[in-house]
Design a protein around this nucleic acid. Structure first.
Lengths: 221, 221
DNA sequence: TAACTATACGGAGCGATGTTCCGGTTAGCA
DNA sequence: TGCTAACCGGAACATCGCTCCGTATAGTTA
């Protein structure tokens, strides 16, 4: 992933040094702003933080979704790659599914407003939605099929619906924090054991997702 | 519902006739606009439709939530009142709960963007959120407690969490329509038998809610 | 090294939307 | 009929997404 940008066909039309520098600045700035102000933070804020103008941010990331995807890409990929691994390592497909869902939920819940953005019907986030779906639906599908084949879950729920439902359930939780900002959480933000935060007034997205997944085990009606 | 407004203590400080006329115009206009453009429709549009100025709409309904609540109030009340009735009429508490949830879901799904607004962390909708909760949490609580007492559901999920989860699951579906506008739907918008619409790309909020509720039947982990 | 050009930069500016404010209008009453 | 408090309307201000274009510069070539 690191290295430069495109490097596949012929001689790469290498970008100018200042362009690449600015792109990186924007990614860093966006990552920081997303943590504090959420994925919906004003574009101007991100541009200002990166020390660039409005034109620059839109040149590098035509839509907000592009920026969001760029910031979270490797985390989504990691989640996607964890699917097959879990399926291989777990005692049963349904256990693998549960674990994978936990992974996904933990990712969503720790990103302010990400889940809400995924749910948004805003045209701006169409691409983001599509990216998540492209990456995760196939993975979830395999887990779901394996579980269904083992007779461990009902078969009338597809991966798309399940992922959307999970995203929805998480949107209620993560987004609510908003401007409140959860104390420090200095640097880390990865191994922070995000355990039972429950965030606002007692809504626990993880628990509700667990209930949902448990509902999959109930035989078809 | 009809009649005037406040009529409880002392001599009501009756509003002027034009004020009441405008308030009603706004309610009618808002109801119409909500159907086609969703609850998030621009304030100007509603004001224009009602044939009043910006000042007027804000004077009668200081926040958008106030307007939304006023438009849907009696439907929410109906939903709240259906709870005890279902509990009395159904074969078992869990059946009553399921039926009541269906009622609630049908209500949410048919109101463009309502569920999304409920989920929104926007301060503007705080009041709306609170209103729904005030009205429905007690009802849901009774159903849930009855079901738990009968040993039909797990007991670690409270009414608040369940309602929020349901709202979330519905937000994904209803909001997606957005600007697309569903044909005419001239006046009615009540007995339209909204059956199995499924709306966008195959996500069925009702089904996912059913899975969630089914998950409640799984014994505590 | 100096000139040149494709590339990139920056921010002013436009349109949309929420919200406030204030001068003009009018309903209800004496 | 005349008065006043209540009410109305929309201009005006603020925020935000997004575009456009004149300016600056990185990289190249003579």
């Amino acid at each position: 992933m690191s290295d430069s940008g495109e490097r596949s066909t012929t001689a790469a039309p290498r970008k100018r040094a200042d362009a690449r520098r600015n792109e990186q600045s924007l990614l860093d700035a966006a990552a920081e702003v997303f943590v504090t102000a959420g994925v919906q933070a004003p574009v101007r804020v991100i541009a200002a933080r990166a020390g660039v103008g409005m034109g620059t941010i839109y040149r590098h990331f035509p839509t907000r979704a592009d920026l969001v995807i760029a910031v979270f890409r490797h985390q989504v990929d990691a989640c996607a790659q964890a699917g097959p691994a879990l399926l291989a390592d777990s005692a049963s497909p349904s256990v693998a599914l549960t674990r994978w869902v936990d992974l996904f939920v933990d990712f969503l819940v720790t990103k302010h407003g990400l889940a809400a953005a995924l749910q948004s019907d805003d045209a701006q986030f169409q691409t983001l939605h599509a990216y998540f779906l492209d990456r995760l639906v196939p993975v979830c599908e395999r887990l779901l099929e394996a579980a269904a084949a083992a007779g461990e879950t009902r078969s009338d729920v597809d991966a798309y619906g399940l992922l959307r439902a999970i995203g929805s359930l998480c949107a209620g939780a993560a987004g609510a924090a908003g401007t409140t900002e959860s104390a420090g959480t200095t640097g880390g933000a990865d191994t922070t054991e995000v355990a039972g935060v429950a965030a606002d007034s007692g809504y626990d997205a993880r628990r509700m997702v667990h209930v949902l997944v448990a509902g999959l085990a109930v035989p078809d009606p």
